[in-house]
Write a protein that binds this DNA or RNA. Structure first.
Lengths: 189, 189
DNA sequence: TTTACAAAACTAATATCATTAGTTATTATA
DNA sequence: TATAATAACTAATGATATTAGTTTTGTAAA
């Protein structure tokens, strides 16, 4: 009805994030998104390149935010404390923004330069936390892979209700990370 | 053209698996599947309930097969050796049948009874391997969650090219599992 | 052997998507 | 004030899954 709704790219992205978080990234369609924004579907094309592009933007935003959450969480912490905090921050993010997290983990094409860059930031952050451990570069990279596998696997399984037993989930995560870190200490020292 | 193509539910499922493994589960559509089977799309409905049902069947078959792969891998092995072998079998399965693995990890609804059952079989299998460790039931369940997180996370990241550094992937997986198992030994003994 | 029925394929139609082309109204700028 | 850029629109297209109804085929009963 009203021309000039006042939309811009960021507003569209925010609405998409909200919709993904609330109803799952599968339910995110341009049709539903346009309706939410009181606009006809084709109007969205003034602000996004298309559906795949929107999905990519979600992934990128998710990667940036999850890294920021980890950075915030490790303030004033080092070594095992920092890794534990970073791991919990990662999983908490997935809980709080499930749609955005789904967007990260169901990536369109990871070859995209912007996504590559955002992913690298996560890796570089973890490498910095590992510095005090005095690992070789190769060793540190293996640890980063291990850490990412643990937290992503945990968040992913939790998100799809993969943990159905009556058992405290935070405790499972704490034990997973601490058991790994304990093993790491022995390997090192 | 020819009536009576000789299709049945299993043939349709196999073709779907093949298509998912070859081109990714995103590319799996009823239209493409019907074309591959030399049949019109609506004909598929004689053998499947619909698209969501087909996806569910893929997930279930994947869960069954990945559990069988782990069972086969641990023959003649126990404790750490068995867990390591099971973990590698899990990841190898994801590499060999990427579409089927995607189907497992992008599950539609995990609340479905058949999927629940298939998932439980995986958990029960892991619990049996953990028996010799003499853990309490609660401890064992935490370990199962940890193990599943590690291998699923690793397979998932690897599948989407999440590991971009020049670094042997099998070695990363071996270190991840062994580091965790080492930590577990200390916690226990 | 013939007939009847169930099942597997079909055609046709609908609804929901994303996307593109072309149009109109609004805002900003020259 | 006039012009240009832009954000909305309508209309149309092609792909998708799904349903309804039809035709053909295979099988089992009479």
């Amino acid at each position: 009805m009203a021309y000039r709704q006042g939309l811009d790219a960021e507003t569209v992205l925010q609405a998409a994030i909200e919709m993904a978080d609330l109803q799952g990234v599968e339910q995110l369609t341009l049709a539903a998104l346009a309706a939410k924004l009181n606009v006809k579907t084709p109007s969205l094309y003034n602000h996004i390149k298309g559906f795949p592009d929107l999905r990519k933007q979600l992934s990128r935003r998710g990667l940036v935010l999850i890294k920021e959450a980890m950075v915030e969480a490790v303030i004033g912490k080092a070594e095992d404390d920092a890794l534990l905090a970073a791991g919990f921050a990662y999983v908490m993010f997935a809980r709080k923004q499930p749609g955005l997290y789904e967007a990260i983990s169901s990536l369109p094409d990871y070859e995209d330069p912007e996504l590559k860059e955002a992913g690298s930031q996560v890796v570089l952050f973890l490498l910095r936390i590992l510095e005090p451990y005095g690992l070789s570069e190769e060793d540190a990279l293996h640890v980063v892979r291990g850490f990412r596998s643990m937290v992503h696997g945990f968040a992913s399984l939790e998100h799809r209700n993969g943990f159905r037993m009556e058992l405290e989930k935070d405790e499972s995560l704490r034990r997973l990370l601490q058991t790994y870190l304990r093993g790491l200490r022995i390997a090192v020292k």
